[in-house]
Amino acid sequence: MRRTLDRFVTAIATTCAIAALLVIGGIVTAIAWRGAGALSVEFLTDSMRGAGAAGGILYNLLGTLILLATALAVSLPIATSLALLHGVYLRSERARERLWIALTVTHGIPSILFGLFGLLVFVRILGFGKSWLTGGILLGIMMLPTVSVALAERIRALPAKYVETAAGLGMSPSRIVRSVILPQCAGGLVTGSLLGLARAAGETAPILFTATVFAGATLPRGVVDSPVLTLPYHIFVLSQDSLDPEARARAWAAALVLLALVLCLSLAALPARLRTHEEARHG
């Protein structure tokens, strides 16, 4: 009886896994199929011309990278502080729970709401206009839960003996954070950041009104009124509005580049994730 149930569960799990892989494989193949034709070195090193029908996506790629770098710079220190608050400094269980709930809720906020929030606060009230900084900050906030939860999980999994040993050697709490907890849990920070970036790279809604334009921008010179071109918005506009088959083919190629970027970020996080599992298994 138990045997049969076991097999049944295994079969269902395998089917689901295969289905998921097929879907992912299908998406990748479809994009690669349509996008590969327009892909070339010039496509990556040229700026866009003719409303997307000619040239390349250099500034779109750079713009997306600028947003990601800003998002990382914003979220790393804040996420680290939150994770340390949760794992080290907050003494009451209630406070820790509240922080955790806040992170979970942030994770669940629809990205368009981040966009509207950014529009109101940064674009209108603070008068940034459309700016790469606003986009970076919004994406950074969106990444916060992913990054800080990944780090907090690592801190929680850190065996108490390390902290105890370090304290037993006369190290102060802040020393212990710097010399024991952060070095040993840095993997969580790396994993969380890469996964968060992978998600942020493809987000359109938060940057739509706040940070990006379709054309007419290169590298930002300042903060106020300096939007960037981005890959997701480029794809969005071309596939929605363009009737030109040449431009549509290039949209697919841009999608392929974005996909490759996201895959690279996710794959880069893999070794660190596997290592965590290894550690969990072997203690």
Binding site: K161, Y162, T165, A167, G168, L169, G170, S179, Q184
Partner: peptide, 27 residues
């Protein structure tokens, strides 16, 4: 300072994932 004056050794050794020398000098 007190804990540096009164050291402790636990049942299970807790080794930091660094070199032998760094472990010795950790505290």
């Amino acid at each position: 300072t007190l804990r540096a004056r009164v050291g402790i050794l636990f049942q299970q050794p807790a080794i930091f994932p660094v070199s032998i020398e760094k472990n010795v000098l950790f505290g």
